[in-house]
């Protein structure tokens, strides 16, 4: 039996908006690049493991090459020494791309208000969603992924994203 419903539709045509179709696909196939540096990365591992199961949201294809990824998950403290590397990875990712700052350190430097810690990754790269917590629970990380899905649904696919105007501290 054909369960796809194709026998009902036959050769009929569905009209929709191109944004709706493309974003429908994007929403369920986010490929994260995990820039995991510290404690938050351990909680991201838990998010990916079977209990919390990130694949329920279509984001389980973790890529370790920025060229393959469209979602940058910065999980952990980013020091000044690390900052140029983060920027390089962000620059290597093709558009469209989204960024999640996981946890207090990535969002604002957290309680490391000192000589070595970048006071939030938004000094270097544009951030779409900030996740509170030190570290956030896996549910909070999943919530951020759902947040990205909601956000990208509203974005026009044929226009350049506004983050291209972003000027970070390391942009020349």
């Amino acid at each position: 039996m054909d369960v796809s419903g194709g026998h009902l539709l036959g050769d009929s045509v569905i009209t929709t908006k191109i944004d709706a179709v493309i974003n429908w696909g994007r929403e369920a196939s986010l490929w994260p690049f995990v820039f995991g540096t510290a404690c938050c990365a351990i909680e991201f591992m838990a998010t990916a493991a079977s209990r919390y199961d990130i694949s329920r949201f279509g984001a389980e294809v973790l890529r370790f090459s920025p060229r393959h990824a469209d979602l940058l998950v910065v999980a952990g403290t980013v020091s000044y020494k690390q900052a140029p590397i983060l920027k390089q990875i962000y620059d290597q990712m093709p558009e469209p791309k989204w960024v999640i700052a996981v946890g207090a350190c990535a969002s604002s430097g957290g309680f490391y208000d000192n000589y070595t810690t970048l006071q939030g990754i938004d000094e270097i790269v544009p951030v779409d969603i900030y996740v509170a917590g030190c570290p956030p629970r896996p549910e909070a990380i999943l919530d951020a992924i759902i947040g990205i899905q909601k956000q990208l649904k509203k974005e026009p696919t044929l226009q350049l994203r506004s983050n291209l105007e972003f000027k970070g501290k390391l942009d020349g």
């Binding site: 900052a83 000589y115 070595t116 501290k169």
Partner: peptide
């Protein structure tokens, strides 16, 4: 940085590896 006359919040940007 661990010298007592180095101010704790004085961060310095790094531009290259």
């Amino acid at each position: 940085p661990l010298r007592k006359d180095y101010e704790i919040t004085k961060g310095q940007y790094c531009t290259k590896t």
